[in-house]
Simulated scan of single mutants.
Amino acid sequence: MTKKVLVIGGCGRIGKSVARDIATHTEAEITITSRNPESQVEPPFKFLVLDLSDPEQILKAIAPMDLVVHCAGPFHHRDGKVLESCISLGINYIDVSDHRSFYERVIKHQNSAIAKGVTAVLNTGIFPGISNSMVKQGVEQFDRPEKIHLSYVVGGSGGAGLTVMRTTFLGLKNKFSAWIDGKWQEISPYSEREVIEFPKPYGKTGVYWFDMPETYTFADSFPVETVITKFGSIPDWYNHLTWITAHVFPKSWVNTPKGIEFFARVSYLMTKATDPFSGIGVAMRAEITGEKAGKRETYCTTMVHQNTAIAAGAGTGAVAELMLAGKLKKPGIYPVEQALSTEMFLDTMKSRKIEIINH
């Protein structure tokens, strides 16, 4: 019997990439949702208007499905009702959630998911997503891993839309806790610039502290003393503008919905102008330090892709492929690094021609 997949928010840049990847690698029947009734989708996809503020609509939409893939961010503002509905109906779930606050809101349903036999995998995509599995691969090389340093850089818009821009500026609003030297410490967003050597064509570029779900979940997933997550943009002057937004402009400018929307739209227009020159790709670098056979060593992996949105689609689509095939079944709610094995991760990346390079 043909499996049915619902891609919520499938008309956005990331959602479209996810739907296309699932269509390429599975035989599933895919329905894409949007709150806009005028949205259009191309075959082989079906279309459904869905208002996520209406619980009855959510239940009706997901009831006939085998898998729900939630791509409608920003997840700072999502209440977890889609996941709750999936658990109540016994339907597996994946999302591209990108903030610790969402994880904290939904993890309370862990026991219910286990009781219902529902596998729910959070934080899939590219960062978080592929980044998490790169770190897991590195951690597994050690007898005693000590430090995770994850950094990534995006060219221009990364091929993403306004939702991702909003997420970036929402991440500048507040200080956040990071796991450093075995304890939680407060960090200012977009601080402590560090120049990292990324693979070509990016080379050396600046990255800054940024609050990602990995900052929070890695401390629970892996027995390490320090977790560092840093982000940067190309061209580098975007980094300086973002730093000014975080540290110079009045806090009120990024603490209101109107302020976030203003910065997101201005940034989006700027990247549309620079994308032809900067590209829309992504590079990631995961460096793990620890002890192996009594010696202190460092293990590093890198990954590059020319289109960030397509890479995000691959990260989420890979998890969907495995779940639909019955290869990934782990009842409960987990960040992707706790659900996906390194072997399955590498196999699905290879089939998508995404190379994870070990250094």
Rank of each mutant, 00 (worst) to 15 (best):
Ser101Cys: 06
Gly80Met: 04
Gly80Asn: 03
Asn111Cys: 08
Ile94Lys: 04
Ser88Cys: 08
Ile87Leu: 09
Ser97Asp: 04
Ile107Gly: 02
Val82Lys: 00
Val96Arg: 01
Cys86His: 13
His99Gly: 08
Leu83Ile: 07
Cys86Ser: 15
Phe102Arg: 01
Asp79Lys: 01
Ile91Ala: 10
Val106Gly: 03
Asn111Gln: 15
Arg100Asn: 03
Ile107Asn: 12
His77Gln: 07
Gly90Trp: 04
Asn111Pro: 13
Ile87Pro: 06
Asn111Trp: 06
Cys86Phe: 11
Asp95Met: 04
Gly80His: 07
Ile91His: 08
Asp95Tyr: 05
Asn111Phe: 06
Lys81Trp: 14
Phe102Thr: 06
Asp79Tyr: 02
Val96Asp: 00
Leu89Phe: 08
Asn92Tyr: 07
Ser97Pro: 00
Lys81Ala: 11
Ala115Lys: 06
Ile91Gly: 13
Arg78Cys: 02
His109Ser: 14
Ile94His: 03
Ser101Met: 02
Ser101Lys: 00
Val82Ala: 13
Glu84Tyr: 11
Gly90His: 08
Lys81Ser: 15
Val96Leu: 14
Glu104Leu: 06
Ile94Ser: 01
Ser112Pro: 06
Leu89Thr: 15
Glu84Lys: 14
Asp98Trp: 00
Ile91Tyr: 13
Leu83Asn: 09
Lys108Asn: 09
Phe102Gly: 03
Tyr103Ala: 08
Asp95Asn: 11
Val106Gln: 02
Ser85Asp: 07
Arg78Glu: 09
Lys108Phe: 11
Lys81Thr: 13
Ser85Gln: 08
Ile114Trp: 03
Ser88Tyr: 08
Ile114Thr: 10
Asn92Ala: 15
Ser101Leu: 05
Lys108Leu: 09
Glu104Lys: 04
Cys86Gln: 08
Gly90Asn: 12
Val82Ile: 13
Val96Gly: 01
Ser97Leu: 02
Lys81Gly: 14
Ile114Pro: 05
Ser101Ile: 12
Arg105Lys: 13
Arg78Pro: 00
Lys108Glu: 05
Tyr103Met: 07
Asp95Gln: 12
Val106Tyr: 02
Ile87Glu: 02
Glu104Val: 02
Gln110Ser: 05
Ala115His: 07
Arg78Tyr: 01
Ile107Cys: 14
His77Phe: 15
Ala113Thr: 09
Gln110Met: 10
Lys108Ile: 06
Gln110His: 13
Gln110Pro: 03
Gly90Phe: 06
Phe102Tyr: 13
His77Asn: 13
Tyr103Pro: 05
His109Phe: 05
Ile114Asn: 10
Cys86Thr: 10
Tyr93Leu: 12
Gln110Asn: 14
Asp98Ser: 14
His99Trp: 09
Val96Met: 04
Arg105Cys: 06
Asp79Leu: 07
His99Arg: 03
Tyr103Ser: 07
